[in-house]
Design a protein around this nucleic acid. Structure first.
Lengths: 196, 196
DNA sequence: CGTGTGCATTCACCTATGTTAATTAAGGGA
DNA sequence: TCCCTTAATTAACATAGGTGAATGCACACG
């Protein structure tokens, strides 16, 4: 699929947009390729951009006082990612965002994001709907963390987001599930035994 | 504080608004008093309204297959609450929302929410910013659930949101923290002993 | 081709939280 | 006021997941 098609399809899911507006939107972004292991955002620095993922995978995580990483988002094609708080407030980021493989992004600066929202009503609407969706998603995630075992969450992840489960190293998956790699290994072993 | 003042102060934090627009906003809401123990939204039914809390406390929770409740949000004065997914999509709600004490709400129907966003740009902006804020909050919450013990989360809650910690029965607090009431008791006991 | 670095796995042991159940305290309605 | 229901506490025991350490594997790099 053509790169613009990915973006257009994504936007069209939320709002009606004509090709002139799509062009205006694209003009507010800059393409960037990011290599595996590179950082899109480092905690402590201000996140000047948000990114739309055209291709590849990125993970957003916090690092606790013991140096442990805790993955809060894994973004694949068609997702947006940033340290939203930092992006909006220009305060230092608390999350670090790393490319898990070579990826292609469309970057939108804070200034252009504000401009898009100010000047083009359909984009303000788009970002409102996008954010509402993400919020719904996060509320559900919290309720799942609370009501399901790690094993159930893993099974669910495999079922609901196989693209993610397959394209991400296991220790990132474990972290995303809120457990240690050893525990994920144990869970996988148990599942394999039960399946036998 | 006058009720309209609460709303105005809340909106003014995010956008500049004149009193004519404030009046238009208020005209799109209807006041409602809800008694302790009453349900604002029941899971399985469509959430036709979102509520701005003028006074009181409400909790939003899911109920799992074992009948256990899992509190995902506690809303006090100045907060908005609904089953956002249901409110936006008109699908049945997955969360149940209950008043933990007698509360006063301003209700906004889905139709009026859409009208506000369509017709008054400053309100579309307001809801975008409101939702972005909530999303930031939820991302942080997930990272805290993953990186902190229940004890630390409890201490943090007391410190950061004393109004909530004090006005809500402990078993709701426990659920909000993701633990059982017995565990919260144990944690409180330990904290009390250490303080001695 | 070796070889080193990091990932996944396994295991033995540990700890925080869950479970069950009994006891007490507190609040709401007849 | 009394009673009944629900909330909070405590304790003994169970368990999911964490911890630390050892092993094997694989792929990138010389």
């Amino acid at each position: 699929m053509d790169k613009l098609d990915i973006l257009q399809k994504h936007i069209s899911l939320k709002v009606d947009i004509d090709s002139a507006d799509l062009d205006r939107f694209v003009a507010l972004t800059t393409p960037r390729t990011i290599e595996k292991g590179e950082f899109f955002i480092r905690s402590g620095q201000v996140a000047r951009y948000q990114a739309f993922v055209l291709k590849g995978v990125l993970a957003s995580y916090s690092i606790d006082t013991k140096g442990e990483k805790h993955v809060v988002q894994i973004a694949i094609e068609g997702h947006w990612i940033s340290d939203l708080y930092s992006f909006l407030s220009k305060e230092p980021a608390v999350f670090t965002i790393e490319a898990l493989e070579k990826s292609e992004l469309l970057l939108m600066s804070n200034e252009n994001h504000e401009r898009a929202c100010d000047e083009i009503p359909v984009f303000e609407r788009f970002f409102r709907l996008l954010t509402q969706n993400a919020l719904v998603h996060h509320q559900r995630r919290i309720s799942h963390i609370y009501s399901e075992s790690a094993e159930d969450r893993y099974l669910n992840l495999i079922k609901e987001k196989p693209e993610i489960a397959q394209s991400v190293p296991q220790h990132y998956l474990a972290s995303f599930l809120g457990i240690k790699p050893q525990s994920l290994s144990r869970i996988r072993k148990k599942i394999a035994e039960n399946a036998r």
